[in-house]
């Protein structure tokens, strides 16, 4: 039998409309005061296999609030994929990504798709906290959930007719992270330990790989 687990993640940051680069979007969004909050409940289907492709049953629910989007928008569909391997075409550095994909409808019923990416590894261990809590986000026009949910960074540029609405950066604050740890729930308490163990292993492993790649490059 599959052993499931849930936890709640709260992320906040800034974004800007008409921007394609998350870093610039966050900077401009800060100046404009365009905040965004994401309150996401992560539902891991099977703690033994949560990081293995194709990860169809890691669902996301909750809501997103951004003053620029109006009221709290409930997540209509959501999906989180853990540790998707990504190899940079230019530098050859291997990283692992946590990919969030959300479908929302605004107050008037216009659909939009949110893609968020946490990039882990590919550098030294000192960046672990920052990497593991920072999510670069893009907002796309329309219901493109089916088109972008399974696509990696390298291929998202090739998705036909994808129109970027906004870009920005959101992150888990230290206090929010502590709170997040208290939200871990499972039918069987051993699942929590098992999930934590596997997650940390993958997380540290990403940096070990990065270090190896560094050495290899030298």
């Amino acid at each position: 039998m599959k052993a499931g687990l849930t936890f709640t993640e709260t992320l906040q940051g800034h974004l800007s409309f008409g921007e394609h680069d998350p870093q610039r979007g966050a900077l401009r969004g800060t100046q404009e005061g365009n905040k965004i909050f994401c309150h996401l409940e992560v539902n891991v289907g099977d703690v033994e296999r949560f990081y293995l492709p194709p990860q169809p049953d890691n669902a996301l629910s909750g809501w997103v609030y951004s003053s620029a989007l109006g009221k709290r928008l409930p997540v209509a569909r959501g999906n989180l994929r853990f540790f998707v391997k990504d190899k940079s075409a230019t530098t050859g550095v291997v990283t692992y990504q946590l990919r969030y994909c959300l479908l929302l409808f605004d107050e008037l019923g216009h659909p939009l798709t949110v893609v968020g990416v946490k990039t882990i590894g590919g550098s030294h261990l000192g960046r672990l906290w920052k990497d593991a809590t920072t999510v670069r986000i893009h907002l796309y026009k329309g219901d493109r959930f089916a088109d972008v949910a399974g696509v990696s960074d390298a291929h998202i540029g090739h998705v036909q007719g994808l129109e970027t609405l906004a870009a920005g950066v959101i992150s888990v604050r230290p206090l929010a992270f502590l709170r997040q740890l208290t939200t871990l729930r499972a039918a069987d308490p051993r699942s929590v330990v098992r999930f934590g163990g596997l997650f940390m292993k993958r997380l540290l492993g990403a940096y070990a790989l990065g270090a190896r790649a560094d050495r290899g490059a030298r």
């Binding site: 800007s16 409309f17 008409g18 921007e19 989007l69 008037l108 796309y140 026009k141």
Partner: peptide, 13 residues
């Protein structure tokens, strides 16, 4: 326009 912005991604900043 602000409320319908999601339908108009290429609107000026």
């Amino acid at each position: 326009l602000l409320k319908n912005r999601i339908a108009f991604p290429r609107l000026s900043r």
